[in-house]
Design a protein around this nucleic acid. Structure first.
Lengths: 68, 68
DNA sequence: GAAAAATATACCCGAAAGGGACTATTTCAA
DNA sequence: TTGAAATAGTCCCTTTCGGGTATATTTTTC
């Protein structure tokens, strides 16, 4: 599981939101949210950032493998 | 400029590579490398990670606006 | 300042992502 | 255990990204 997928899944749950609720609030498609959480690698960066922005986060470069 | 675009551009130059050389070595298209460095937001995450992997990095969630 | 190299922009097409809707499977509480 | 909610998988269509090529602009080097 990639770091971003794991982060979204974990924090969405922590916020008590279902995938559908999260999709609604973020303005993303439900299908996208699912694909993202399942670790789909070919997702678009802007959509990923829209999802991360729900937690005041964004995609940044990080050393590979840090904090498994 | 988004953090990833800035990182790639900066480190590619630091490595003494042109966009074309970087594209060759990473296996990415020249056009993609350019779009990425120019901050195109709709790029695919897997390609972004391929670029970052050249420096042993990957896209991870980071607090928004940290380290301008 | 001129020439060359590097980078940015434009056009086109094939491949694929995003998304809606529907179904199947898993999870979880009563 | 069972029934409802949540998540995962499938099909199809529309949009658009990725990349090749060709041209313009900027930057660098002499």
């Amino acid at each position: 599981m990639n770091p971003i997928a794991a982060y979204i899944k974990e924090n969405r749950k922590a916020a008590g939101l279902t995938q559908a609720e999260f999709a609604m609030r973020s303005g993303l498609g439900l299908r996208f949210v699912r694909d993202l959480e399942q670790g789909k690698t070919t997702v678009r960066l802007d959509k990923v950032n829209t999802a991360l922005a729900m937690f005041d986060m964004e995609a940044v470069p990080g050393r590979k493998g840090a904090s498994e």
